[in-house]
C-alpha cells in the first residue's frame, strides 16, 4: 500500500493555495490567534461530553500537554509558512492519532469545530465583504490541506499495522504436523479465503512430498463459516492431495456445517468426511494397515 506523498509545493498546487491566500491568512492572524485559547477551551468542553475523553485525556498532565500542542498547531497554521517542515509536523499529528487509536471522527469533528469558530470570529470583524470572503476561502483551503495530510498519514499507519498483522497471521495459519509415519494433520482455524486456501494447498503439497505421506487429515472444526466458496476450496485441496497419491480426510464437520453443505447443494463427491478427529485417525490408520491397541 504505497502512499503518494506530495511535497509542500505540490500540495499548495493541488489546493490552489497562492501567495494571496497566505497574505489573507496573515491579515487574519492577529485577531484569530487571540481567540484560539478560548476555542481550545470550548472544544475540550465539548470533548468532555464524549466517550473518548475519558479514554485519552483522563490524565490532567496529558490534557495540558495536548492543549499546548494545539495552540502551537494553530499558531503554525496562521504563520502559513507551508514548507516541508510544515507538512512533516502535520504528518506526525496523523501518525500520533493512529498510534493512540484516536478515531478520525473525533479529529474531523475537531477541525470542523475550530473552522466554524474561526468563521464566526471572521464574520464579526468590521471588514469589507470581499476581504472576508477571501480570508474565508483561504482558511478553507489550508484547513482542507491539513486534513488531507493528517488523514493520509493516519491511513498509512493503519495500513502498515494491518499488513504486519496479516503477515503474522499467514505465517501461523498452516501448521501442518506429522501425526505418524505417512500421516499428516492440519487443523484449520478461522476463515478460509482464496489466498489462504492457496497457502494451505502449497504447504500441504510440499509436506506430502517431503514426508511421503499417504494420508492427510484436514480438521475444520475451527472454521467458523463453511459456504460454497469455502467448500470449493476444501474440495480443491482434497483433489490436489489425491493427485499426489495421498488420501485426504476432512474431519470436524459440525452438524451445522453438514446441514449447510447439503442445503447449498455442494457436491462433495468422494471426499471422506468425519465428525471428529478420532474417527478420521481411525480411518487413516486403517489405510496405513495399523491399529491402536490397548496395552
Amino acid at each position: 500500500m504505497e502512499v503518494i506523498s506530495r511535497n509542500a509545493t505540490q500540495l499548495c498546487d493541488l489546493y490552489g493555495i497562492t501567495k494571496e491566500d497566505i497574505d489573507a491568512i496573515h491579515e487574519f492572524k492577529p485577531v484569530a490567534i487571540n481567540e484560539v485559547p478560548k476555542m481550545v477551551e470550548s472544544w475540550y468542553k465539548w470533548l468532555k461530553t464524549t466517550a473518548e475523553f475519558q479514554e485519552y485525556f483522563a490524565d490532567p498532565a496529558t490534557l495540558h500537554r495536548v492543549q499546548r500542542m494545539q495552540l502551537s498547531f494553530w499558531e503554525e497554521f496562521f504563520d502559513a509558512n507551508i514548507d516541508d517542515q510544515y507538512v512533516a509536523t502535520r504528518k506526525s499529528v496523523g501518525e500520533v492519532h493512529a498510534r493512540i487509536g484516536l478515531s478520525q471522527e473525533i479529529y474531523l469533528a475537531g477541525v470542523d469545530h475550530f473552522l466554524s469558530l474561526f468563521i464566526e470570529v471572521l464574520l464579526i470583524q468590521d471588514w469589507s465583504r470581499e476581504k472576508i470572503d477571501k480570508i474565508r476561502r483561504a482558511l478553507n483551503k489550508i484547513v482542507h490541506m491539513d486534513m488531507t495530510i493528517i488523514v493520509q498519514s493516519y491511513e498509512h499507519i493503519v495500513n502498515q499495522k494491518i499488513t504486519a498483522q496479516s503477515k503474522t497471521l499467514m505465517a501461523m495459519s498452516t501448521p501442518v504436523t506429522q501425526l505418524w509415519d505417512g500421516l499428516l494433520l492440519l487443523p484449520v482455524v478461522g476463515l478460509i479465503d482464496s489466498r489462504r486456501a492457496q497457502d494451505i494447498m502449497d504447504n500441504t503439497l510440499n509436506y506430502i512430498s517431503q514426508h511421503h505421506a499417504q494420508s492427510f487429515i484436514l480438521d475444520i472444526s475451527g472454521v467458523a463459516v463453511v459456504d460454497t466458496a469455502v467448500a470449493n476450496h476444501l474440495i480443491k485441496i482434497t483433489k490436489a492431495t489425491k493427485l499426489m497419491g495421498c488420501e485426504c480426510i476432512i474431519s470436524g464437520l459440525s452438524p451445522a456445517v453438514a446441514q449447510t453443505i447439503v442445503e447449498l447443494g455442494i457436491d462433495v463427491g468422494t471426499i471422506r468426511t468425519t465428525a471428529n478427529l478420532k474417527a478420521a485417525i481411525e480411518i487413516a490408520f486403517e489405510k496405513l494397515n495399523m491399529k491402536i491397541v490397548k496395552k
Binding site: 494447498m201 506430502i208 483433489k239 493427485l243 499426489m244
Partner: peptide, 12 residues
C-alpha cells in the same frame, strides 16, 4: 506416480 507439488497445484 510422483507428481510434484508445483505440477499438482497448477493442474488444480
Amino acid at each position: 506416480s510422483g507428481l510434484r507439488p508445483s505440477v499438482v497445484s497448477s493442474l488444480i
